[in-house]
């Protein structure tokens, strides 16, 4: 029996898109210090939720820049450290990095930042493809609860969920939105 759960909307589809657009605007307006020229930037989304956020962010960023910068996607399934506790995931998405990442400035994008393990795995994966000049982390929501020394550079929303609550980006079709999820017995 799979457990049932209750979702409460945290960000509506419109609010979610607006938040991503705001992040793009902020990134464009104040790029990180010592950053490379835009030509050297790469946006990389972590599958699955981060990929949707990255796509939207990249679209908006390219609009503002008036030029196309590369985008890629990373599947970190094979880099996770929890095979022994959650078992294998046979629904693995493909990593899609068409560009060189050596000496580039990477904007690593995820939807919800929690323990930091996903980011740890993503960085391991990333470095199997090359050696970027720098990696910035951008997340839509930071919900705290870190178990590793990882901090995002760019955050859309910081919240503190209650005990037993999870923050989820749902992306059914075009209607990407964020919910608080509470498991029910």
């Amino acid at each position: 029996m799979s457990p049932t759960f209750h979702d409460e909307q945290l960000l509506s589809p419109a609010e979610t898109l607006a938040l991503i657009d705001a992040l793009a605007a902020r990134l464009h307006a104040s790029p990180p210090p010592r950053s490379l020229p835009w030509e050297e930037w790469v946006v990389i989304g972590i599958r699955r939720g981060g990929a949707r956020v990255a796509e939207r962010l990249w679209e908006r960023l390219c609009q503002r820049l008036g030029q196309k910068i590369p985008i890629g996607f990373l599947d970190i399934t094979f880099y996770r450290d929890d095979l022994d506790t959650i078992g294998p995931n046979p629904v693995v998405g493909a990593t899609d990095l068409q560009m060189e990442i050596d000496d580039r400035q990477v904007i690593l994008v995820d939807d919800v930042l929690y323990t930091g393990r996903t980011i740890r795995a993503a960085m391991n994966a990333l470095f199997d493809y090359g050696r970027p000049e720098s990696v910035d982390l951008l997340v839509l929501v930071d919900r705290g609860g870190r178990q590793l020394p990882i901090q995002p550079h760019h955050v859309g929303l910081v919240i503190q969920p209650a005990e037993g609550e999870f923050i989820k980006l749902l992306d059914s079709g075009e209607k990407m939105h964020v919910v608080r999820r509470r498991l029910q017995e």
């Binding site: 094979f78 046979p90 629904v91 693995v92 998405g93 493909a94 994966a125 199997d128 493809y129």
Partner: peptide, 22 residues
């Protein structure tokens, strides 16, 4: 499930660093 997993893993075999820590 097995074939889908294999498809994902094919990508690893095309990289320069053909190894994952799984």
């Amino acid at each position: 499930a097995l074939l889908d997993t294999a498809v994902s893993l094919r990508e690893v075999n095309r990289r320069d660093i053909k190894k994952v820590p799984t």
